[in-house]
């Protein structure tokens, strides 16, 4: 008999025991490990997917912020450009104003310098001219300068025409006396000669007073009432002063124009 039924039962029991043992010690731990690993891998994959989605979201957010930044950068640049233009205009206006103030000050300084120069030239010129004329007259003639002045005054008196002479007589008649002012003191002889000449010219003796005025600068004048006949270096000096003042003003204008153009180009 090939089948031993006791062995059959024992083998069946052995097999069932083996099923139980392997289930406990092999299948269950192995399947638990596999399931745990699969869960972990699934969790890792889900985490990776979540991170990927987060990265995509952050990338989109970054792109959006970059676009916004680019837009705001353009706006900021425009605003900065506008402010820079305004500031440039303001600084230009301030520089122009300062330049105009400095130009006015410089022009005023030039005018002051011209005035001072004019006064200096006038004084120096008068003194020099007197000195030169005095020296020249002294060198060229035997008479003194004062004598010559008196002669010149007498020549002018004699050269008065009819209406002018009548006006002088009329003025003399209203005041009653003549006043002779000179830059130097006339000698008695000169005073006598002058009285005589006036008497001859006016056809009557005239009360004559003599007065010395240094500002006449080598000159002599005759005053009767509101009329005056004179010759004086001061008159010539006055005309020279006017000429010098004209020259100084012309130079000042030329200097202002030459400086005004560079300043304008520097501002712009």
């Amino acid at each position: 008999m090939l089948i031993d039924w006791f062995t059959v039962c024992a083998q069946a029991l052995n097999f069932l025991i083996l099923v139980w043992l392997l289930t406990k010690f092999l299948y269950r731990p192995i399947l638990a490990a596999i399931d745990a690993r699969e869960r972990r891998i699934a969790a890792d994959l889900a985490d990776a997917a979540a991170r990927k989605a987060e990265a995509v979201s952050e990338r989109d957010d970054f792109a959006r912020r970059s676009a916004e930044l680019a837009g705001s950068r353009t706006a900021l640049l425009d605003q900065a450009r506008t402010e820079a233009d305004a500031l440039r205009r303001q600084l230009s206006d301030e520089a122009r104003s300062a330049a105009e103030v400095q130009d006015a000050q410089r022009r005023q300084a030039l005018l002051n310098d011209g005035a001072r120069l004019r006064e200096t030239i006038t004084g120096r010129t008068g003194q020099e001219v007197i000195a030169i004329v005095r020296r020249t007259l002294g060198d060229l003639a035997s008479s003194t300068l004062e004598e010559r002045l008196v002669e010149v005054l007498l020549v002018r008196l004699r050269a008065l025409d009819g209406p002018a002479r009548q006006d002088l007589v009329h003025a003399l008649g209203s005041s009653g006396k003549l006043l002779v002012r000179s830059a130097f003191a006339l000698t008695p002889a000169q005073q006598a000669a002058l009285r005589q000449a006036l008497a001859d010219i006016l056809s009557a003796p005239v009360e004559t007073a003599f007065e010395t005025r240094a500002e006449l600068i080598c000159g002599i004048e005759l005053i009767a009432g509101g009329r005056k006949v004179s010759w004086s270096v001061a008159d010539h000096l006055a005309s020279m002063e006017q000429m010098v003042a004209g020259l100084v003003e012309a130079r000042a204008d030329a200097g202002q124009q030459s400086q005004a153009h560079p300043s304008q180009s520097a501002v712009h």
Partner: peptide, 23 residues
């Protein structure tokens, strides 16, 4: 049969003694 069962169970015990649940 007992010997084969012993080999199988001991092998299972030895291998699953330090099972790793990680990668």
């Amino acid at each position: 049969t007992w010997a084969v069962m012993l080999v199988l169970v001991l092998s299972a015990l030895l291998i699953t003694r330090r099972l790793s649940h990680g990668t």
